[in-house]
């Protein structure tokens, strides 16, 4: 009697479970169509950038403006909560392991362009508990803003200060919203995405486009004939904090 009742309840339970899953299955049937990359997309195995400060000098402002306008980056005038994808800071800050007491003052205070290094071996991706930040097949460190839980572990992990958290709703701080790109919402972390949305349409990153004098060189690090590799082959270049093993893919000509 007892066993029979138990069997009955088990069968009933399975049945009930099945009934409760059935409608969910039809809703989650998923999409029928197919996906494809854009027809004009610029593609690479491993996007990288060279920043040539000697050529960039005058375009710095234009580069940061172009990026922040394109991506609806809010202009929060508060160092604690500011959001930045690309910005400038003095050599003494960006390369603070490499400065010394007797350094040429002009050089120490000279402003350099900084952005996410799109590391080959990224700490942020290693620590993220949800894969909200991940490396895509073209070597770009992407943010999935739908998945980010706002734990800020990636900010503790990033040794370059390239990540910003939305401490509050960013919308009131965007002067003119670009209707073609989303904004972010309070509670998620954001950063430079090497303009993956522009690459998909066959356009170079907004900052590269704004550097009219060729101060920013963009290309495929895995292609020995790419422009980036040509510059790296012929010039002396450095990375920020190479000793940490993150292998930055933004190189500098000082």
């Amino acid at each position: 009697m007892d066993i029979n009742r138990r069997k009955f309840l088990k069968a009933g339970g399975v049945l009930a479970l099945g009934l409760s899953i059935a409608p969910a299955k039809s809703v989650l049937a998923g999409v029928k169509g197919k996906y494809a990359p854009g027809p004009n997309a610029l593609t690479a195995k491993n996007w990288a950038m060279v920043v040539d400060m000697n050529k960039l000098e005058k375009d710095v402002e234009a580069c940061t403006m172009a990026c922040h306008k394109e991506h609806n980056v809010p202009n929060i005038d508060n160092k604690k909560e500011e959001v930045k994808w690309i910005w400038t800071d003095k050599y003494g800050h960006l390369f603070h392991d490499n400065k010394h007491d007797f350094m040429n003052k002009e050089m120490e205070h000279r402003h350099f362009l900084a952005l996410c290094n799109q590391c080959e071996n990224p700490v942020c991706v290693r620590v993220c508990p949800t894969k909200a930040t991940f490396k895509n097949k073209e070597g770009i460190i992407m943010m999935d803003y739908h998945r980010c839980i706002g734990c800020r572990y990636c900010m503790a992990g990033c040794p370059y200060g390239a990540r910003s958290f939305n401490f509050k709703d960013p919308r009131p701080y965007i002067e003119e919203i670009n209707p073609n790109y989303p904004t972010r919402t309070k509670g998620v972390v954001e950063k430079c995405n090497f303009c993956s949305e522009r690459l998909a349409k066959g356009l170079l990153p907004a900052c590269v486009e704004a550097s009219t004098n060729g101060g920013l060189v963009f290309g495929d690090l895995d292609d020995p004939n790419s422009e980036v590799r040509k510059v790296l082959d012929t010039q002396f270049t450095v990375q920020r904090k190479p000793s940490l093993g993150t292998k930055p893919k933004v190189f500098y000509i000082l």
């Binding site: 508990p129 949800t130 839980i149 958290f165 309070k186």
Partner: peptide, 11 residues
């Protein structure tokens, strides 16, 4: 501490 606490189960 989470910015998006409603997404905690994403973990």
């Amino acid at each position: 501490d989470m910015g998006m606490p409603m997404r905690v189960l994403n973990m």
